[in-house]
């Protein structure tokens, strides 16, 4: 999922730098129209429509969260039931052993807890994070990607990747700079 792929002769891809989100979005759209499939865009904030432009617009995160939430709720309820009905039944205030209304708050909390774990760790896992090293960090100006610059990389593993053609193509998009990204 992380999208690093196999090294092709020491080259990860070619990266182009843009100065505003509009240019980046147009560049990504053109690159997709050109037939490139293995690319990624980098920006200091989420840009509406960007993930579709790089050919990615679905995630299983909602399903993960829903399943985790249901598991948590059922698990929390079962825990209370098992502890106070099977393992250690106690008469408290004349209440029935299976005091189901009293299990609801804990079942609810467990549902939320597991669903939140699903959302956070699911997102990190699907994104392949943490990933301390990534080839794009080799680009000298890439630290601007977390400030005010925008990058588009076309990966070497793309079936249409030919170094010169990619460089020429990126040049037609009027980027600020084009750099090869080494591994």
């Amino acid at each position: 999922m992380g999208g690093i792929g196999k090294p092709i002769s020491g080259l990860y891809g070619v990266i182009a730098e843009f100065t505003n989100p509009q240019d980046l979005l147009e560049a990504a759209n053109k690159a997709r129209d050109e037939g490139f499939t293995e690319m990624d865009a980098f920006s200091p904030f989420p840009i509406h429509g960007m993930s579709e432009a790089v050919g990615f617009n679905k995630t299983r995160l909602s399903t993960i969260v829903l399943v985790m939430g249901i598991l948590g709720g059922l698990g929390g309820f079962f825990m209370c039931w098992y502890a106070n009905v099977i393992a250690y039944p106690l008469n408290i205030g004349g209440k029935p052993f299976n005091s189901w209304p009293a299990w609801i708050p804990i079942a609810f909390e467990c549902a939320i807890l597991l669903a939140a774990f699903g959302a956070v760790f699911g997102m990190l896992a699907l994104n392949g994070l943490p990933m301390p090293y990534h080839p794009v960090f080799n680009v000298r100006r890439f630290d601007q990607a977390s400030r005010d610059k925008f990058f588009l990389v076309i990966q070497a593993r793309d079936p249409k990747f030919k170094l010169d053609e990619v460089r020429n193509f990126l040049d037609t998009l009027h980027p600020r700079e084009i750099v090869d990204v080494p591994w």
Binding site: G3, A28, D40, A41, F42, S43, P44, F45, P46, I47, M50, S51, A53, V54, F56, N57, T59, L61, S62, V65, G69, I112, A115, A116, A119, V120, G122, M123, L124, L126, N127, L129, P130, M131, P132, Y133, H134, V136, F137, F142, A145, S146
Partner: peptide, 23 residues
């Protein structure tokens, strides 16, 4: 965590953030 602002990451990130808000 090696965050690099990838478009794909942002997509899941925003999704997760909304889900967390909903939870």
């Amino acid at each position: 965590l090696g965050w690099r602002g990838s478009a794909k990451h942002w997509y899941r990130y925003e999704h997760a953030y909304l889900l967390l808000a909903g939870l």
